[in-house]
């Protein structure tokens, strides 16, 4: 009984390791994954529908050149409603989730930061673990 259970435990020693070696490699995220929003500055017209859709009052339309949305990630729950209802398809969900920062001010993402490319992909840290 107890010995049999020990056998099961011993058998797992010889199975494949499941640990995802995070900082070096990021697992393959599905296409549907909802991470940090990406803003296509060419397509955005600053209509503010995303801001109205948001349940949490995350999005503020600010002027940086033209009018663009600014995201307060400290409020955002990444539900994807803003992306679903963007009439021009300017917003999209990326696979970028590494958002930890040192101060509260850094959680606010300006339009320029939203339009920047994905950091992890630039560093080539994706792939590796599918499960």
């Amino acid at each position: 009984m107890v010995l049999k259970n020990l056998q099961i435990t011993l058998r797992t020693v010889y199975t494949k390791s499941v640990t995802r070696l995070y900082p070096e490699e990021i697992m393959d995220l599905p296409d549907a994954f909802r991470g940090q929003q990406h803003l296509d500055m060419d397509k955005c017209v600053g209509c503010g529908i995303c801001s109205q859709m948001c349940p949490n009052d995350v999005i503020e339309i600010v002027k940086s050149g033209k009018w663009y949305p600014q995201f307060d990630n400290g409020h955002c729950m990444f539900c994807g409603l803003c992306v679903d209802f963007c009439p021009n398809g300017a917003l999209s969900m990326t696979k970028h989730f590494e958002l930890a920062c040192w101060t509260k001010e850094e959680t606010v993402y300006s339009p320029d930061q939203l339009a920047a490319p994905n950091k992890a992909e630039l560093e080539g840290r994706t792939g590796g673990y599918t499960k």
Binding site: L29, P30, A32, F33, R34, M77, C79, G80, M93
Partner: peptide
């Protein structure tokens, strides 16, 4: 679940 819905929990 994540592959369909895009999120782990919510």
């Amino acid at each position: 679940l994540e592959a369909i819905t895009g999120s782990r929990l919510n």
